[in-house]
């Protein structure tokens, strides 16, 4: 018989290295003579799309488009150390470093422009749509490229180097008391499953995921992280297990170590909650790891909802489900006697 159930899972995740470990990111910025710019950072884009995020941050700050920004990363001869692409820290931490570097380059640019426009303070200058000019006076502006080029003739260059360090402190080794991570990210997911009581097979029909991201710097990438996390969570809950015999891996192959395929992953509805994190770039916090956390709980709780068995050892393979169903039946029989 096929039975359906729904399960809820919540999770939290302290982002960053944590526990007082120096969590530093760095970036170099150069604004070019044609008004485009380059960002150099050591942060590796492992496929999650951090380079695009840095381009968006720099473009936003300079009144440009993302394609006006060249992001070059992760070459130790050319880029500054930005720590590891891990701990859900690159959007937050290196994002902050890029933002600080762009702002620093911008300070000298705005000062130069203020002087050019006879404006007593850089506060009166704005960058927008590829132009630099006086706030509120559209007649006094010029293409950013012209301004940067003129500045070069006078020996002024708009380049910068900045770093950003996340806050965290070590906990007390005896009591574990302290503030080890910052910021924390939250999320919850609901899974609907169908359990075949004859075969023990669990089919995940749908996952709804809601994650706290501070600010979604790129909603497409947020959705991508969530769906990828859900798929890995389903693999963790139902499929994946390294089988060891005396330390030797019995299934070192993708034919025997099974990860989810397009047929194992359900319809995923991804939502995000935006409540700005004051210390993050444009209010953002990271999402990479939190995206996969609630899935395992949602699936395991949904199995219980469907067939009334509590799986306590992962993965919830058909064998484990059938065993749990048999144990439950036996228990019921004993009670009946």
């Amino acid at each position: 018989m096929k039975k359906r159930g729904i399960g809820l899972g919540c999770a939290w995740y302290g982002t960053g290295y944590g526990n007082g470990f120096p969590d530093v990111s760095s970036a170099f910025v150069e604004i070019h003579d044609d008004g485009s710019a380059t960002v150099l950072t050591g942060a590796v884009d492992v496929g999650q799309g951090s380079n695009s995020i840095y381009a968006q941050i720099a473009a936003e700050e300079l009144g440009l488009q993302a394609q006006d920004i060249c992001v070059y990363s992760a070459d130790t001869d050319a880029t500054p150390d930005s720590g590891t692409t891990a701990a859900t820290r690159q959007t937050y931490n290196t994002g902050n470093a890029v933002l600080r570097a762009v702002r620093q380059a911008k300070v000298s640019l705005l000062d130069y422009a203020a002087h050019k426009f006879s404006c007593p303070t850089a506060e009166g200058i704005e960058l927008s749509g590829g132009y630099i000019g006086v706030k509120g006076d559209p007649s006094r502006r010029m293409p950013l490229a012209d301004m940067v080029f003129q500045a070069r003739l006078q020996g002024e260059r708009f380049i910068s180097a900045e770093s950003s360090t996340a806050r965290s402190t070590p906990v007390d080794p005896e009591t574990g008391q302290g503030a080890p991570y910052w910021p924390y990210a939250f999320g919850c997911q609901v899974a609907e499953v169908e359990v075949d009581t004859e075969t023990g097979l669990v089919h995940v029909l749908k996952v709804v995921a809601v994650h706290d991201v501070g600010k979604a710097l790129n909603p497409t990438q947020v959705e991508g992280q969530i769906a990828g996390g859900v798929a890995q969570g389903i693999g963790y809950a139902l499929l994946e297990e390294l089988e060891l015999h005396e330390g030797k891996i019995k299934n070192p192959a993708l034919s025997s170590y099974l990860i989810p395929t397009a047929l194992d992953v359900p319809n995923i509805e991804a939502f995000f909650v935006e409540e700005a994190e004051a210390t993050g770039p444009f209010g953002a916090k990271g999402l990479g790891e939190p995206a996969m956390l609630p899935t395992v709980a949602a699936v395991i709780n949904a199995i219980d909802d469907a067939v009334g068995v509590r799986i306590t050892s992962l993965p919830a393979t058909p064998e484990r489900i059938l065993q749990a169903l048999a144990d439950k039946k036996e228990e019921a029989n004993l009670k009946g006697e």
Partner: peptide, 22 residues
């Protein structure tokens, strides 16, 4: 660990958004 949570802690909003699906 005794950490007092401040700032962006919107788990309530996440739960509110997911509640209809339950």
């Amino acid at each position: 660990t005794g950490q007092v949570l401040t700032g962006s802690i919107p788990l309530d909003q996440c739960l509110a958004k997911i509640a209809p699906y339950l």
